[in-house]
């Protein structure tokens, strides 16, 4: 059986190398054919456009009868991807796996997951909240992440700041999807900046949601 697994994986790697149209790549890291790195470009017309996403691929002993293990190596800001670990919430990686699926088709599914998030079935609760309550803010943070971690080119028009030729430095607040005004409001009260960012992020202190959150509740959290 393991012979069949090796044959199939080798064929999958070969076929993927031959296929120039899909833009999916599957490469070996060392001589182990069961630990691979897959990669694909971020889908167009998404915050991930222009980015290049690498995925860690672990092929279990029982492949293809049990699902391949995949997680993002490149950090992604997406409701179905853990922003901390890269773990992915996708049905075909769990109970909807079929031995007919391949590494390539699974990577294509990941690519389309970037295109169509499923916020009802999130892997990352905070990102999902951000996505649901403040779409514009979410998109902007996802773009910042794509630029910072996935080598996406910086779009000049974005953010409205076109400094004299130099790229704009993305602040820690922006990376957390928070507005500088909200963060400095509490920093100015004397709280430490990382703590403020962490609490506001957890409380989803963004966009219209700010009006739903009592300032005292935030302070209570900060004093904890």
């Amino acid at each position: 059986m393991s012979d069949a697994r090796l044959r199939r994986v080798q064929k999958e790697i070969r076929d993927c190398a031959k296929d120039k149209t899909s833009q999916i790549s599957i490469e070996m890291i060392d001589e182990n054919p069961f630990h691979l790195v897959g990669a694909f470009p971020g889908p167009p017309d998404t915050p991930y456009e222009g980015g290049y996403y690498e995925v860690d691929i672990n092929i279990p002993e029982t492949y293809p009868f049990q699902p391949v293990k995949m997680k993002f190596i490149t950090k992604v800001y997406h409701p179905n991807v853990s922003s901390a670990s890269g773990a992915i919430c996708l049905d075909i990686l769990k109970d909807a796996w079929s031995p007919v699926l391949t590494l390539k088709s699974t990577l294509i599914s990941l690519q389309s997951l970037l295109n169509e998030p499923v916020p009802e079935d999130p892997q990352d609760a905070e990102v999902a909240k951000h996505y649901n309550s403040d779409r514009a803010g979410f998109i902007s943070t996802a773009k910042h992440w794509a630029q910072a971690y996935a080598q996406a080119p910086v779009h000049k028009q974005q953010g409205g700041v076109t400094g004299g030729g130099g790229t704009k430095k993305v602040t820690d607040a922006e990376m957390a999807g928070l507005s500088e005004a909200s963060v400095s409001q509490f920093v100015d009260m004397g709280f430490e900046r990382p703590k403020v960012i962490s609490v506001l992020k957890r409380m989803n202190y963004r966009g219209n949601n700010i009006s739903n959150i009592n300032e005292n509740t935030v302070l209570e959290e900060l004093f904890k």
Partner: peptide, 29 residues
């Protein structure tokens, strides 16, 4: 998600940003 779960995400992110935790979600899904 439970509050503990969200807090755990928090901690992991913080630790990861500080470079303490290796980038491993494991297979404990």
């Amino acid at each position: 998600f439970d509050q503990e779960e969200i807090a755990r995400f928090e901690r992991e992110t913080a630790m990861q940003q500080a470079g303490i935790v290796d980038f491993d979600g494991g297979d404990a899904w």
